[in-house]
């Protein structure tokens, strides 16, 4: 597997605190269904940006927190 096929699981976001604040503020004032919808759209937008199915599979597995896989 070459470098690009590998999901990055080490710190990779520049100014992580700022990003996290952006994420929270995107949800501010939204109802639970609106927030769920926003998250779903965000996942799809990001997934399309990644595109690579191998990386997406690794991301799904990583998000499931299945330890030892």
């Amino acid at each position: 597997m070459n470098h690009q096929d590998q999901l990055i699981l080490t710190p990779n976001i520049d100014r992580a605190d700022d990003f996290y604040a952006d994420l929270l503020s995107a949800h501010e004032g939204l109802s639970k269904p609106e927030s769920d919808a926003l998250n779903a759209r965000l996942v799809l937008v990001l997934a399309n940006h990644i595109g690579d199915r191998d990386v997406l599979k690794q991301a799904l597995a990583a998000a499931a927190l299945n330890k030892g896989e």
């Binding site: 919808a37 779903a40 759209r41 937008v45 399309n48």
Partner: peptide
């Protein structure tokens, strides 16, 4: 929720 997200995005973005 995911299905509706796809449809909402499809209105503006080709990728969806």
């Amino acid at each position: 929720v995911l299905r509706d997200a796809v449809l909402d995005l499809s209105e503006q973005y080709e990728f969806a």
